[in-house]
Write a protein that binds this DNA or RNA. Structure first.
Ligand code: SF4
Ligand code: SF4
Lengths: 130, 130
DNA sequence: GCAAGTAGGACTTTTTTAGTCCTATATAAC
DNA sequence: GTTATATAGGACTAAAAAAGTCCTACTTGC
């Protein structure tokens, strides 16, 4: 369906929120203001932290903050951090692919298409969402 | 997951097949040569015909053929013909959207991203898969 | 000590995609 | 005009992925 998952969408919303306020925010704050499931967003924030886009501080008065400037966070980084697979087809590496690989005649072109998609996604940053 | 469905993938393979041979082919021929489920491909071909990309002739010695030159069939046309929804988010029209629309702050940017994706998809044609 | 936070495992539900099965209809060849 | 070979298409099942929920543990400022 060529659709971005809700995880990515929520992630972008959260990053936009942090970029806009320029301050630390708790998951609760972000989820409330944007009508996003708290539990779901909590996981997303953890993933973004793991990826190095966010830092966190635990305990009272804790929360999440941006590790990078908004213009340093391209959308494809968010996709990479939040989705298992972000390839346009089952083909990930040049070598292992789907069961039809032996007879497949579109693998090469698909990889090129993939690259172009990546480029679009990497050319847009959080700063452009403000 | 930002992934093209198998329907689109198989559709592209089939179109490539037709473009390569430049002749009419039956679903059986294409499905056999490319190890694609016959039933599944049959539906795909019907959809591509409905969209005007292919013509068909029924009965003995029938089959499917291209209605357009390979360079006149961009990938995004195939996507449009084979997938219900091809938008990057739930947002389709400018007006109706998801339940979070009232508080959503990324709708505009998402639409722009969508446009760029479309452009990539429309700039690659079947001719480039040969 | 306790309230406010993040960290994260395990799970259920829902939605989407992929794949199958069966029947009807058209037509060229004989 | 019968028959084999095609497309046309409805209905269904199975599998995979995404979305959402629930519960517990750990951290830390006050
Ligand atoms: S069909 Fe071809 S392009 Fe698609 S996943 Fe398989 S090998 Fe890759
Ligand atoms: S969250 Fe915003 S961009 Fe996403 S579907 Fe809802 S209204 Fe559209």
């Amino acid at each position: 369906m060529l659709r971005l998952s809700k995880r990515v969408e929520y992630g972008l919303v959260a990053l936009q929120h942090l970029a806009k306020t320029g301050d630390v925010a708790t998951v609760r704050e972000i989820s409330d203001e944007n009508s996003i499931s708290y539990d779901l967003l909590a996981k997303i924030m953890q993933d973004l932290k793991r990826d190095g886009v966010l830092y966190s501080s635990q305990g009272v008065r804790g929360g999440y903050g941006l590790m990078l400037a908004p213009q340093e966070i391209p959308v494809n980084r968010v996709v990479g951090a939040l989705e298992e697979q972000s390839s346009i087809t089952e083909c990930t590496s040049e070598t292992e692919c789907c069961s039809r690989e032996a007879v497949c005649t579109i693998k090469g072109p698909m990889h090129k298409l993939q690259e172009q998609m990546e480029q679009v996604l990497s050319s847009v940053t959080i700063a452009q969402l403000l």
